[in-house]
Structure formats: structure tokens, C-alpha cells
Design a binder for these strands. Structure first.
Lengths: 191, 191
DNA sequence: TGTACATCAGTGAACGCGCGTTCACTGATGTAC
DNA sequence: TGTACATCAGTGAACGCGCGTTCACTGATGTAC
């Protein structure tokens, strides 16, 4: 059943969107091609009409996820004055919503340890994601006149990623919220 | 070929040691029972004489890994004066060696995102590991007279885990070292 | 514009492989007398 | 202490299942005239 060129493109985008969400939620190894295709309203056989392999999809899905996160963080800084921008970014990243919804959040926190081991395009994509986030934070700090902005950006991103990860590991919501709150405060103190 | 009680115990410990290392290196999903048994010098069939399931082993392996890390960090603080203890702990955690050797390092950084999704004993073990590390950092900060030691401990551990993770993702050793150095500096400047 | 043919998105069965787990068996250890 | 039996760590084949991938087929779309 051949489809319109536009329909085909939409289907492809739909698969990527589903994968981007499900991979972050359950890990790349935790979701099968058949699962993804079913979630996208298709059968598994057609998968390879859109992607060369599961790994190729994983690459695109990670890329999409990282770009989403980057643009959301950018947006959070654009809505406030420069001197509040970093505060807004940190609050957005270390929000309770972000902690509760890995499937919509930062791929570095959701797939970081998996990405370290993967050895191909997925790894490269993650590297680029880290670099882009560092650049965003760096330029934002520089704009606010923070000294040693590049070095500080390293510290900020480390704290963000680690804080989000820990807030998801810890068993109670009390502890989770405390980690988010305290890590936010930690980052923003004496920037 | 039945073995001595002592030999049996040693074999069991050997399997845990191998698993603890290999799981951290390749992820729990990335290593098979047969692989582990071979690394331990055995055939796969005997595995279930020692453990109920792969998951049961994963739990013990994570527990062992976390305890190792905790005691190593404790040791790093014991070798210096109180006022240098936190600096020593941070330097030990964010060392180049730790970044290069996940298989011997902190299980939270190595298996964090996998642990968040696992739903049984492994998750519980990781929770306990986080709590123990937080307690260590907290008590150390308190001993040094740092104010809001518990809140600061949250920030410190977030930065440690995130910094280590990022240092492993980034592609060049230059960038990796920069992240380690800057995150160390970032943490210590906030205390 | 209409027609005939080639293309190709999607289907569903099937393949091949790896992995966690089970099982019958072996033979040295531990135990009961 | 010595002997007979039960236990059980370890072996290697086998099972069952899931998963990534392939393939023959379908029928609507796109294209060439």
C-alpha cells in the first residue's frame, strides 16, 4: 500500500517521535522495533523502509531529543531578563516535571550511561548534545558577566545532569524535591 | 564435581567480583550470564547453584560496587586533615583514573540511567548507595563546619556524578580533563 | 488529459541468533553410623 | 577411624522466548508516453 510522499515523511517523523520518547523512558535496549512500530500505528515489517537499522533510528531519536531539550532551555532564558536567565534555565532543567518525565526530557540524563557504551553515531550525537548545552550555558553566563564562564559552564552542566539523575534515583518525593531544590541553590550560589 | 564449602564461597565471591566489574563496564544488559561465568572460569550451567537469577546477581554486584566506592572515598578522606578532607574526596571522585575506569568506579555514574528503570532489588540497592554517599559527604561537610551541610551535600553529589558522567561522554581527553578540573573547582568554590 | 507501467510504503510470516533458564549427569565432599 | 550413602558444585546440552532483520506480496501512488 504505497503512500503519498508527504504521508511517508509524516510516518517517518512519527516513528522518530515515538522512539525519542520511548527510548528515553525505557532505554534503547528496553524498546523493540516491533513495539515502536506498533506505538506508531504500523506493523514492524515496514520499519526498514524508513531506517537502515535500529541504531540508525536511535541516532535520529537522540538527536531529536537533544534538540528539543536545547530549544526548550533556550526558550526558558528568552522569557526573562538577562540577569535572571541562568536562574530560569536552572529552574527549568531541575524542575519537578523534568524529574518525573524522563521521556520528555534531557537525553543525557536519561540515556547517558547507555550512550557512553554505544559506539557509533549515537555516541557522536550525544557528544554534540553535550557540546551544544555547554555552549548555551557558557554564552548565557558570559552575557551575564560571570567570570570564567567556560569553566563555570562545565560545573553548571555537571550539577544539572547529576542533580536530575539523583532526583530520579531517590525513592521518595521528599528526597527528590530536596535534591532538586538544593542543587538549584548550589549552582546559583556565588556564580 | 562437588567443591569444598570454602571453595564454593570463593567461587560465589569471584562471580560477584567479575559481575561487578563487567556490569559497570558494559551495562547489566550488555553482559550475559554465560560471559560472566566464563570470565570467572566456569561454565554457564552452574550459575544457578549460586544465584536465583541474573537480577539477583546484579543486585549483589551493585551492592559490592557501591560499598567499594564508599569505602574508597572514606579512605581518601581519612588520609588527610579534616579541613582538606572534602577536597581529597572530590579529587578522588573526579580523578582522571575514575573517569577512564567505569568498571572500577561509582556504580551510580556507570549504571545510573539503567538503575532508574530497573524495578526491584537493583533499584533499592542504588537508592541505598546514593543515601550512603550523601551521608558520607554530609558528615564530612558538617565536620568541617560548613553551613547547611545537608543541602550542600546534595549539590556536591550532583556535581560529582554529573561531572564524572560528562567527562566520559565527551570525545577528547582535553575536554574530559577540563570537565573534571572545572567541576572540582566549581564544587570546592561553593563550600 | 488519459492510460499503462514502475515504484515503493506497508503487511505479516519467517529466519537466525543470543540469552536466561532448566535439566540429567558426574564425581568429589560431607555426613551418619 | 573407617565405610556407605547423601549431597551438591560444576558440566554441557537443550529449551523457549524475544528481538533485529529479511522477504514475498499487495495495492495505491507517481511517472512516462
Amino acid at each position: 500500500v504505497k503512500k503519498t510522499r508527504e504521508e511517508t515523511l509524516q510516518t517517518r517523523q512519527r516513528i522518530i517521535a515515538v522512539a525519542s520518547r520511548d527510548f528515553r523512558e525505557k532505554g534503547i535496549n528496553g524498546v523493540g522495533v516491533a513495539d515502536l512500530m506498533q506505538s506508531a500505528g504500523l506493523t514492524h515489517g515496514g520499519f526498514y523502509k524508513h531506517f537502515d537499522s535500529k541504531d540508525a533510528l536511535a541516532t535520529e531519536a537522540c538527536d531529536a531529543a537533544l534538540k528539543d531539550t536545547l530549544s526548550e532551555l533556550k526558550q526558558s532564558t528568552n522569557q526573562v531578563d538577562d540577569h535572571e536567565a541562568m536562574q530560569a534555565l536552572v529552574a527549568a532543567y531541575l524542575s519537578r516535571a523534568h524529574s518525573l518525565h524522563p521521556e520528555q526530557g534531557c537525553a543525557i540524563a536519561a540515556l547517558g550511561s547507555e550512550a557512553i557504551r554505544s559506539d557509533g553515531q549515537v555516541k557522536k550525537t550525544m557528544e554534540m548534545g553535550v557540546e551544544n548545552l555547554l555552549n548555551l550555558i557558557h554564552s548565557q553566563l558570559a552575557r551575564q558577566g560571570v567570570r570564567d564562564a567556560e569553566a563555570k559552564a562545565h560545573g553548571v552542566l555537571s550539577s544539572l545532569v547529576g542533580g536530575l539523575l539523583l532526583s530520579r534515583i531517590v525513592p521518595t518525593s521528599i528526597q527528590s524535591k530536596a535534591i532538586l531544590r538544593d542543587t538549584k541553590q548550589f549552582i546559583l550560589s556565588k556564580l
